[in-house]
């Protein structure tokens, strides 16, 4: 749906495909696509802030990973992993000293679409 060069690493593009608004994100050369609707109250999810993941730890400790890979809904700020669409609503139930590399699935999931790069063109399968 777009030339890969139009979406540089760290960038995004919101497009309409088959009547659906979809955001395509480039994280370090890999592409991911999410439906542009937040499962909470329907906000335009893909317009949200790209941020990192703050790991649960001890009070006063702010361990910060995966910068640019977490999408925060522009309305209420809910956090979604761009790679999987999973929300971080139910953080890990594991104990404080182990923190997940993958986010534990919360009950809310943003719709994702497979993305392929064919030559220099990004293709989203809707």
């Amino acid at each position: 749906m777009a030339a890969a060069a139009e979406i540089p690493p760290g960038g995004r593009r919101i497009v309409t495909l088959e009547g659906r608004s979809i955001g395509v994100f480039n994280i370090g050369g890999e592409f991911f696509a999410l439906r542009n609707v937040c499962p909470h109250q329907g906000g335009p999810l893909c317009q949200g802030v790209l941020s990192g993941f703050v790991v649960p730890g001890t009070p006063g400790e702010y361990r910060y990973l995966r910068r640019g890979e977490i999408l925060r809904c522009p309305w209420h700020g809910w956090e979604f992993d761009i790679r999987t669409g999973q929300s971080y609503l139910d953080p890990a139930r594991t104990r404080v000293h182990t923190y997940p590399v993958e986010l534990v699935a919360g009950p809310y999931v943003a719709e994702t679409y497979p993305v392929m790069v064919e030559g220099d063109v990004v293709v989203v399968q809707v």
Partner: peptide, 10 residues
């Protein structure tokens, strides 16, 4: 504001 309530979904 960010804590906006959408009438259809709030």
């Amino acid at each position: 504001h960010w804590d906006y309530d959408d009438p259809a979904r709030a």
